[in-house]
Simulated assay, not measured.
Amino acid sequence: MKIGIVSVQGAFIEHEKMLASLGAECVELRKKEDIERNEISAIVLPGGESTVQGKLLRELGMFGPIKRLIESGVPVLATCAGMILLAQHISGDGTVHFGTLPVTVRRNAYGRQLGSFVRKGNVSGIGEFEMAFIRAPFVEKTESRDVDVLSEVDGRIVAVRFKNQLALAFHPEIGEDTRIHELFLAMIEQSARRKAG
């Protein structure tokens, strides 16, 4: 089981370290060949700059292969910019990247004064979690009854799950709490069992 961590820009190394600490095998995806050479069981789309990441993924020939993996049901953990890459709609912006997650997100939703902050909130199935928001988006609205809202902070949706996609506005890779990544590993195991069965 190999987790492909998109490593073209952003906070990918923190995800890699946390997943490795839980015993997962990770491979950094920097070019198309990294996807073709490895049997990828799951994908991490890290925080960073969504516009830059989208541009680089296309230029490096990675966009199509990653989108096909997501559409085929490969589990995905997307944080911050990753959530924007998955979204079907970006509020006030006609740009669509993968468009596999039926939500509308608002980019840089908290503005300059709240550009970065930490807040404790409840995550469904996990409990209280310390959430680090860094120039974070949030989900303005969900567009399918199949989207499960996992967490809201101050009345704003900050974590959702849709089928194989787990998308968060915050950064669970920062700090010591591994429970979000454990949830993701459980999603991967469930996916593997379904394929084997």
Rank of each mutant, 00 (worst) to 15 (best):
I157Y: 08
D34P: 02
N38A: 10
K55N: 14
N164E: 07
R58H: 13
H15D: 06
P172Q: 09
G48D: 06
I90Q: 01
N122V: 15
G4K: 04
A78P: 02
S124G: 07
L57F: 02
F170V: 10
N108V: 02
T142P: 10
I70F: 13
S151I: 06
G111E: 05
H171K: 04
Q190M: 11
V153L: 13
I13L: 12
V158G: 00
I174T: 11
L77I: 01
G64M: 11
I174Y: 13
I35Y: 00
M1R: 13
V139A: 08
L183H: 14
S7M: 01
E176S: 13
F12S: 08
V96M: 12
Q9C: 08
D177A: 09
K17L: 14
H181N: 11
A42C: 07
G155Q: 05
L45I: 01
G197I: 09
L29V: 09
S21M: 04
R112E: 12
V52M: 13
G121Y: 06
I43S: 00
V27L: 02
I157G: 02
E173K: 03
G94Q: 10
H15E: 04
V44T: 06
E189V: 04
R112H: 08
A109M: 00
E59N: 15
V27N: 02
T95K: 15
E140Y: 09
F184T: 00
T100E: 05
S7G: 03
M131Y: 03
G99N: 00
I66T: 07
I40S: 04
E25W: 03
I35C: 07
A109G: 14
G94C: 07
F170L: 05
V147S: 01
G61P: 03
R106S: 08
L150F: 11
G125D: 05
L60Q: 03
L101D: 01
D148C: 10
I84M: 08
K55H: 14
M18A: 15
I70V: 09
F170S: 04
L45A: 02
E14C: 03
L85W: 05
E33G: 03
T104L: 03
P172L: 10
G197F: 11
V139L: 09
V139D: 05
F12I: 00
S144K: 10
D146V: 00
E36M: 14
S116F: 00
E14M: 11
F63K: 10
E173L: 03
L19K: 01
G64L: 15
T142V: 14
K195Q: 13
Q190N: 12
R161A: 06
V139F: 06
G73K: 06
H181Y: 04
A186M: 14
V103I: 14
G61Q: 09
S41E: 07
R161Q: 15
R179P: 00
A81F: 12
G54K: 05
E16K: 15
A20W: 01
G175I: 08
L114T: 02
S7E: 06
R107C: 10
K31F: 07
G121K: 04
V105T: 13
H89P: 05
G92E: 07
E128I: 10
I70H: 04
L114H: 03
A109T: 01
S21K: 08
I70C: 08
F63G: 01
S72F: 12
E49V: 01
